[in-house]
Amino acid sequence: MPAEFDATTTLQQYAHPERLVTTAWLEANLGTPGLVVAESDEDVLLYNTGHIPGAVKIDWHTDLNDPLTRDYVDADAFAALMRAKGITSDTTIVFYGDQNNWWAAYALWVTSLFGHADVRLLDGGRKKWVDEGRAMNTEIPALADTDYPVTQRDDSVIRAYREQVLAHIGNGPLVDVRSPAEFTGELLHMADYPQEGAIRGGHIPTAHSVPWRRAADETDGTFLPVDQLRAIYEDEIGLTPQDDVIAYCRIGERSSHTWFVLTHLLGFENVRNYDGSWVEWGNAVRVPIEKP
């Protein structure tokens, strides 16, 4: 049985407040049957140094990506992961992590590809929980395997591929959520990630530049109020909730965060994440690239 929704007033401004929980709500609801807290981090050791009590770890690299093909795990592997983490098909999963929930949003998006119904983000992520002095421990929860069903991934609704992006140029908005220097092509990689580069720099023609981090408060990492989000995505770059939007970054993780903002906080109905992103586009032969 899914957990109750967080009725905190500040969350009700968003289109889908049921997709967020506050740190206070989570603390009060820890241990509730049907609720699993999952940590997904950039730093693969961070969970082991201490985590929200009872939380499981879901690793973007080893749990969610296929070890061979550049793709997500298949239905059997996903079901096996959910079973091992004590999750059933009607469990409420609250994701949280480091770096403003960057990888937590990615894990939530991948989980959504498999159609898991009740997925939520902890507003403010790991940092807010830690900064507020809330409980942490290093105990790895002992979980009984569940009977999570094998569910096929549906890549047709919230995921976009290169060919679709190519056809989208000039026909619908693209949002490039990388840093400004990546967008202009000055950097062939994200600052501090020199190995994850591309042969060509720049952006997909017609893309708007809105770095993903702008959607979060600089101090506590919580999402900006809805009017400020609308000012960025609707007033500044002219998106409307009915638009067919494709977001991309470098490998699709930062754009998962923007996908979450547009879909669940602003209520856009047709947002896809192009996970091939710049590592594919900037290395692909004969795709168009724009440089300012």
Partner: peptide, 9 residues
Amino acid sequence: PREAPTSRG
């Protein structure tokens, strides 16, 4: 930093 245990490791 302690918050970067992999790099520390």
